[in-house]
Computed example of a mutant assay.
Amino acid sequence: MTSPADRPAASDGAVLHHRLEGSAAAPPLLLGPSLGTSTALWDRVAPELSVSHRVVRWDLPGHGGSPAGLIGPGATVADLAALVLALADSLGIGRFSYAGVSLGGAVGLHLAVHHPERVEKLAVICSSAHFNGSKPWEERAALVRREGVAQLVGSAAARWFTPGFTVERLIEDQRTVDPEAYAACCDALAAFDLRGQLPRIAAPTLAVAGREDPATPPAHLREIADAVPGAALAEVPGASHLAPAERPEAVLTALRAHFDGGTRRGMEVRRQVLGDAHVDAAQARQSAFTARFQDFISRYAWGEIWTDETLGRRERSMITMTALVAHGHYDELAMHVRAARRNGLTPEEIGAVLLQTAVYCGVPAANSAFAVAQRVLAEERPGL
Score class of each variant (00 low, 15 high):
P4D: 08
P4M: 05
A5Q: 14
A9F: 06
A9W: 03
A9T: 09
S11D: 14
V15T: 12
L20G: 04
A24D: 14
A26S: 11
G32P: 03
L41S: 01
R44G: 02
A46P: 00
V51R: 10
R54P: 00
V56F: 00
P61F: 02
P67N: 10
A68F: 05
G72P: 03
V77K: 00
V77A: 02
A78L: 12
A81C: 10
G100K: 01
G105S: 07
G105K: 02
V107L: 06
H110K: 06
A123Y: 01
H130L: 13
S134C: 09
S134K: 12
R145G: 13
G148Y: 06
A157Y: 02
T166P: 06
Q174K: 10
R175Q: 09
T176L: 14
D178S: 10
D187T: 08
D187A: 10
A190G: 08
A190F: 04
D193C: 07
L194S: 12
G196S: 11
R200N: 08
R200W: 08
R200S: 11
P204S: 10
T205L: 03
E212Y: 07
D213S: 05
A219D: 10
H220R: 11
E223Y: 05
I224L: 13
P229A: 09
G230H: 04
A231L: 06
A232Y: 04
G238R: 13
L242V: 10
E246G: 02
L255A: 03
R256Y: 09
R265A: 13
E268S: 10
R271P: 00
Q272W: 04
Q272D: 15
H278Q: 14
A281Y: 12
A284Q: 13
D295I: 07
F296T: 09
I297F: 09
S298L: 07
D308H: 14
E309V: 15
E315L: 11
E315K: 06
I319C: 11
T320Q: 08
H327G: 13
G328D: 05
G328M: 09
H329T: 11
D331K: 15
D331Y: 15
A334V: 10
M335L: 15
V337S: 00
A339S: 13
V353Y: 00
T357G: 05
V359T: 13
A366G: 07
A366S: 14
S368P: 12
F370R: 07
R375F: 07
P382W: 04
